[in-house]
Design a protein around this nucleic acid. Structure first.
Length: 850
RNA sequence: GCGAAAGUGGCGGAACUGGCAGACGCGCCGGACUUAGGAUCCGGUGACCGAAAGGUCAUUGGGGGUUCGACUCCCCCCUUUCGCACCA
């Protein structure tokens, strides 16, 4: 009977569905395991890149289930977002229709892959029974000042016509479409993620099962730097003096005696005031505007040449007492620190470049710890390392470290500054001027101001009818029935907020909803989230290293502080899987290089596809798709199939005792050894390591060994076609049958996470009922796996010159004697004196030096 | 520029704590079976010698070092990928 994957796969997928094989409930008696792959954006069609991610999780889930864990393995849809709305504009469908159709299609694709999902827990974030809890949480955050509204300059994508969070600006472009980002002034809702900045940063140290790379990215993203704010008073007036000082942020207050100018960002509020107070405000503004209009992206990434212009005003260096000029500089960022910096050209590269260009004074105030004070005349670049202070009055001779402390203390004493911690991380702007998202549940009442919607009035349902203009004004604002509401506080008229939430809100807590997905009284029951959480194994793309993974860590803390979950971190272990490329490029519709899993299933079956994507490379690595590789995986499965087909009648059924150590001949002992060694290797490769590729190769080796075993002369169970051929009536030794049964069954069980359909079918044909999913993982017996004879290589001067075959456990002394007696060894040693002889690691190898 | 990771046959990759480099698969070559095979099975696949057993040499980006022994550890260099990129 040939291997025909399609019928088998259909049969078992149906069986799993009807028996609800992967549905679970909390069971305190068993260890839990929460296995999750990043849920999918329903873009239309799953491609093999998705398949790879889901396979990694499914292999882990199925293996853990067999190893006795209560495994939660759910799936859902990150269903709000722009493409649905764009599709609606383009093809005149409703975003909901488009989304739900895509979900239906992709769900079918995933089901044809035989992934062991608890489908009853499926969620879609675009449905009110999900997003109402976004709204609920938003209100809780509002009550705690974790959600607030302010007018601010925001990142704007002209193509998507919406605001972007800082995290969503990648290389100055939109994370989704790459269009260069511009700015706008808008009233926006923000989540105060910065309240958790320290905690998010400190806890990174405890995430020891996350990829180092992701942690580094998060550390950089949070970007904590310790420094000081110092206020520089304005110097006497050309015209009218301003009382407000200029506050700068610096991490190098130790160099403040060298601050010979102060730089303002073009957007700094003081700049406009200086313009007003200047002799020629128009000319002043023109100069500033030249910088402001410079390409924002280029300015941010330092591609633009450093330029500035003198405001004509001066400020007093509070430590030297000198009046120093105030310049506007295009490279100073308004959004970082205070938007103003002190210029210390001797010790900062940018300031040095700027000072040289505009001929500003340079004052050295730090010398190297073991060298002389640099001579300004001979300097060709700034000396930015820490050192020892000079030309710094009473602080001379202090190290930079000590000086930072002393100078900060002095600033505090004089009331002109204080130590501070500055983060790169900004609060998360979540307002989006688009339709297809969660309505922000807020009312604006003329009398009462900003009023949150009452819990009992949730959800604020997204209206079905809306104009999708794509023009950048919120579509919801065009719907009077939506906008006009009653303020529940005063009963007067109120307007609804018409922006929707960033879809990253949806994905920041969905893993908790999976713990209790049908709950319509609360987001989830705390006890359930606490039973299942945190996610033990989470796999997905590296592109979420900062966005999704940092927001989720933030939300988990918010839920914790609401008393909803008993954990700080959402994900115990994170695996970032490599992408699937074709012709060296990411698969995408526009490039026309998408491999549709359904085509592959049609040709080779889901099991072959599953084996291929797990075998071809380690999960973290990128892979290049090849059809030949997939065929190879199919061949392997067909080989397993033929093997089991050939031996099935011999080994199926009860009454075959488990093999024991005694009475086995050499080939039988060898096979048992291989079986148990394979169990050990595969088990360790899957848990705790997730080396799926080497686990598959271990199984391949076992199959090769089984072919050899069955094909030994005289066996009746030869699998080679045309040689079935042992003399009629040959009956195998009962020991042979027992050993073979053990090997084949272990093989089928261990193959089942990779090729579940075929394995179930073979398991059934081997006479078992109840299904593999409910069968225990094979146990490894170290005694059996132990080799009886070992081959010990003998090295002479580092090169292997002989191999000794000796019984396991031969003593070191005996090995030395045997090695020296070996003919090959003697040939190489000849009459050279032996300098040293070493037996390593309990008889693994003999090393002779002559 | 800064930081991190990586570099192994024709290709994907393996080698766990420093101990037989190249497992497993793809591809290729040969053979068996066959009317036929792009199916299947067996064997080979760094170079050279040999019919074979076997032998000799080379070898993990390059150079140096530590060690009885280095893909693995240390130093320098080269290349690639990724991340950050005027953050004061």
């Amino acid at each position: 009977m040939d291997y025909k994957p399609q019928q088998i796969e259909k049969k078992w997928q149906d069986a799993w569905r009807t028996s609800r094989a992967f549905e679970v409930t909390e069971d305190p008696a068993r260890p839990k395991f929460y296995c999750l792959e990043m849920f999918a954006y329903p873009s239309g069609h799953a491609h093999v890149g998705h398949v790879r991610n889901y396979m990694i999780g499914d292999v882990v889930a199925r293996m853990k289930r067999m190893r006795g864990f209560n495994v939660l393995h759910p799936f859902g849809w990150d269903a709000f977002g722009l493409p649905a709305e764009n599709a609606a504009i383009k093809s005149n469908t409703h975003p909901e229709t488009w989304t739900l159709d895509n979900i239906a299609h992709m769900k079918g694709q995933l089901q044809r892959l035989g992934i062991s999902y608890a489908w009853e827990r499926e969620i879609a974030t675009c449905l009110p029974d999900y997003y109402r809890w976004n709204q609920w949480l938003f209100i809780r955050m509002f009550e705690r000042s974790l959600a607030y509204r302010r007018r601010s300059t925001v990142n704007w994508c002209p193509s998507c016509q919406t605001v972007l969070a800082n995290e969503q600006v990648v290389d100055g472009g939109c994370w989704r479409c790459g269009t260069p980002v511009t700015t706008r002034e808008l009233e926006q809702w923000f989540f105060r993620i910065t309240s958790y900045a320290d905690e998010l940063l400190d806890a990174i140290a405890k995430l020891d099962e996350w990829p180092e790379k992701v942690l580094t990215m998060q550390r950089n993203w949070i970007g904590r730097s310790e420094g000081a704010r110092v206020r520089f008073a304005l110097a006497g007036p050309p015209q009218s003096p301003s009382p407000d000082p200029i506050e700068v942020f610096t991490t190098r207050i130790d160099t403040i005696y060298g601050a010979t100018f102060v730089l303002l960002a073009p957007e700094h509020p003081m700049v406009e005031r200086f313009a007003q107070e200047s002799a020629d405000p128009a000319a002043f503004r023109a100069s500033v505007n030249r910088f402001r209009s410079q390409d924002r992206t280029a300015r941010m990434t330092g591609e633009v040449e450093k330029e500035g212009f003198d405001t004509g005003r001066k400020t007093i260096n509070p430590f030297t007492g000198a009046a120093v000029p105030i310049w506007v500089a295009n490279f100073v960022l308004v959004e970082y620190g205070t938007g103003a910096v002190m210029g210390v050209p001797a010790h900062d590269e940018r300031d040095y470049e700027f000072a040289r260009k505009y001929n500003l004074p340079i004052q050295v105030v730090v010398r190297p710890p073991d060298g002389p004070t640099p001579d300004v005349e001979k300097m060709t670049e700034a000396v930015s390392n820490d050192g020892v202070l000079v030309n710094s009055g009473p602080f001379d001779g202090m190290t930079s470290d000590a000086a930072r402390e002393a100078l900060t203390a002095e600033a505090v004493r004089r009331g002109i500054g204080e130590g501070t911690v500055q983060y790169r991380l900004k609060d998360w702007g979540i307002s989006r001027q688009r339709y297809w998202g969660t309505p922000i549940p807020m009312l604006y009442c003329d009398k009462c101001g900003i009023v949150p919607v009452r819990d009992e009035d949730l959800p604020v349902v997204l209206p079905k009818t809306a104009e999708f203009s794509g023009r950048g004004d919120s579509p919801l604002a065009q719907i009077p029935e939506f906008v006009n509401a009653i303020c529940w506080k005063c009963g007067g008229p109120a307007k609804r907020e018409t922006d929707t939430m960033d879809t990253f809100v949806d994905s920041s807590w969905y893993f908790f909803r999976f713990c209790d997905p049908k709950n319509d009284a609360m987001a989830f029951e705390p006890a359930k989230a606490t039973y299942w959480g945190p996610v033990d194994f989470y796999s997905g793309g590296i592109e979420h290293a900062i966005l999704h993974l940092i927001y989720s860590r933030f939300f988990t803390r918010v839920f914790r502080d609401l008393g909803m979950v008993g954990m700080d971190e959402p994900f115990q272990r994170v695996l970032t899987q490599g992408m699937v490329l074709r012709n060296g490029q990411v698969m995408s519709k526009s490039k026309g290089n998408v491999v549709d899993p359904d085509d592959m299933i049609q040709k080779f079956g889901a099991d072959a596809l599953r084996v291929y994507v797990t075998f071809v490379a380690p999960p973290e690595k990128e892979i290049e798709w090849t059809d030949a590789g997939l065929e190879g995986s199919f061949r392997f499965l067909a080989r397993v199939w033929r093997l089991v087909d050939a031996v099935c009648d011999t080994i199926a059924g009860d009454g075959i005792p488990a093999p024991t150590g005694t009475d086995l001949d050499e080939s039988e002992r060898a096979l048992r050894r291989k079986t148990h060694d394979t169990i050990r290797r595969v088990t360790q490769d899957l848990d705790p390591r997730v080396h799926l590729n080497t686990a598959v190769s271990a199984l391949m080796e076992l199959v090769n060994e089984l072919y050899q075993f069955c094909d030994r002369p005289g066996r009746s169970i030869a699998v080679r076609r045309g040689e079935t051929a042992a003399p009629a009536g040959v009956v195998e030794r009962k020991e042979t049958v027992a050993v073979l049964k053990e090997a084949v069954e272990a093989l089928v069980l261990m193959l089942s996470p990779f090729a579940p359909h075929m394995s179930e079918e073979l398991w059934e044909r081997l006479g078992h009922t109840g299904g593999i999913a409910a069968t225990a993982w094979p146990e490894y017996d170290a005694e059996v796996a132990k080799a009886e004879e070992v081959v010990v290589p003998v090295q002479i001067n580092g090169k292997v010159r002989a191999r000794l075959t000796v019984p396991a456990g031969t003593s070191d002394d005996d090995l030395q004697v045997l090695a020296l007696a070996d003919r090959q060894v003697q040939v190489h040693v000849k009459d050279k004196p032996i300098k040293k002889i070493v037996v390593v690691n309990g008889g693994k190898l003999v090393s002779i030096v002559v």
